[in-house]
Design a protein around this nucleic acid. Sequence first.
RNA 1: GGGCUCGUGGCGCAGCAUGGAUAGCGCGGCAGCCUCCUAAGCUGUAGGUCGUGGGUUCGAAUCCCACCGAGCCCGCCA
Length: 621
Amino acid sequence: MSFLELVGSLKERLSEAASGYPKVEFSILEPPEEFGDLSSNLPLILSKVAGKKPYEVARDIASRLKVDERISEVEAHPSGYLNFRIDYGKFSKEVIERAIEGVRPEWGKGRRVLIEHTSLNPAHQLHVGHLRNVILGDTIYRVLKFLGYEAYVHNYIDDLGLQVGDVMLGIRKLGFDPEGKGLKFDHYIGKIYAEINRMYEEDEGLLEERRKLLEELESLSGVFEFSKLVVDRVVKEQLKTCWRVGARYDCLNYESHILASRMWDDIFEELKRRGIAILSREGRLKGCWYVRVEGEKEGEEKVLVRSDGTTTYIAKDIPYAAWKLGLVEDRFRYVKAMEQPDGSVLWSTALEDGEERHPKFGACDVVINVIDVRQGRLQRMIRYVLERLSGEELKDRYIHLGYEVVSISRDTANEMGIKTDRKVVHMSGRKGVFVSADDLLDSLFTKALAETKKRNPGADEGWARSVAEKVAVAAIRYGMLKQDLDKMLVFDMRKALELEGETGPYLQYTYARASSILRKAGDWSLPESFSFEDESEFKLIKEISKLDFVLDKVHRTLSPVHMAKYGYGLCVSFNSFYERLPVLKEPEEEKRLSRLSLVKAFESTLKTCLELMGIEPLERI
RNA sequence: GGGCUCGUGGCGCAGCAUGGAUAGCGCGGCAGCCUCCUAAGCUGUAGGUCGUGGGUUCGAAUCCCACCGAGCCCGCCA
């Protein structure tokens, strides 16, 4: 029985014991340590409706309560709480055995989920803001996959956007070096992109040139052919960065393929017919087709089709979203684009000549779009249009997983040569103001390599480099996950390079400590019965048992912060156990084997937790 | 102007869904701990009007309202 199940069972038993009272909502929570392992506020709530003193109700319920055998003590506290103690003699065995077995809940079995993340413009390299997106999306993917979902990761390539127009114009004005001037190709194109944006300020005529280029791009001919080559090279380089931090994808969806599929034309007809898309005959939107969300005021309209007949971003997103949900037939063809470092195939949509056999993409039960909060309104609008179209409530099926942006701290901005009085500086690829993801990873690698060598004098160079790379990724991934989605992440180079305290490397270090004990233990097997006596052992067992409790929370909230905090807490518990009690040197056989089992259970649980966050467990560090 | 989000020790954050028992953690400060399973660690200590005011309640960091401060969105860009 896990912690989640224990809480569930306790709640049921409490409801039974309180059957004489009105039915109320109550909770089971963890009290401060001296009050026990679990407690319930049921008597406090009942006292209100029953008009009795909380303590009285608590004693009454305690006397009727038949608890699970894993609960050894029930106390009606004068405060009105019911406090419980876990019988670790009984609880430990199943917790440890289950942890070692690695049982996993299958809450998503039989359900298809589509996660879209990354989706950055193919006009520049990734900066740390994009990294937050990639890492959040990838972590949610890992968790949902673990929970038994049939999960697909999609990366949207906006190959017809303004940014591509900028790049094409930039190349025309600045020239094109197929070698990328010795830079990583996405870095090179990013420089052109920033430079042409600077040039607009001096020469407004360039904007007209770009408009013509965009028209040509949308016609899917002419400059489009060349842009495709550039875009694909940039995407490939961006993917290298994403792979480096452990992400993987199932399919790249190209905007040009959505356009070519003519899915929009059909949906547009339907929107017109149903009166969802409205033609503006006068005023500032004259000649445009727009939507207005019910209840919103005049002036809140969103244009779908411009007066010149071209479509806006939101219009192109509607058929794509409908495809994701299976509201329209799948008109895409698919080809194998490349193999990824994890060995899986990355597919791509195609215009024609697709593979006959391919995984079934789209048509998912749940769609999760990982996009920063600034697009919240647009995402709600897309969902609104889809709801009008399908007549279905999509709140639980079409989810915008919004997160706050990453900005740069004043200190780091100053070090980068950006003068500012403000507390933070917002990143902008267009202005060339950003912290490069590749550069950050390189800096972290260099620092981690020095640390690894310092701690392992004479170690093999290849081994040290491999460890350093994994430590670097752990640092960046944990750093991105440890604060909740609604908090702006202020990037500070000094803090980002930290490898101590609540960081990814701390978790890896703790894992290595446990691995080291198990490696040196030789042959051993689980004892008949466990012998634990120390508070630190009980605490660790309890933490281990909480894995599915935490998974449940992440599943419900889609917020990986809970996984991060859990992994950290698990390690804190282990380290305090580690510092207090010997394992290998414990003279009593039963205790030694019990502790070894506990270490094994911990190692197994932390491993799961790390893998869900995309952090490599390291046996030596 | 309308909408969304955030405000918790010097700094960075958990806790808020489901109100309750001394408000947790990391960094930084101070004091300790390596003849012992990896000190990327551990222990102790100092430091908090939970933005402000009001309301609901026996009880509010948590729920409601107002205000203040910060950020974002409100484009025929994406």
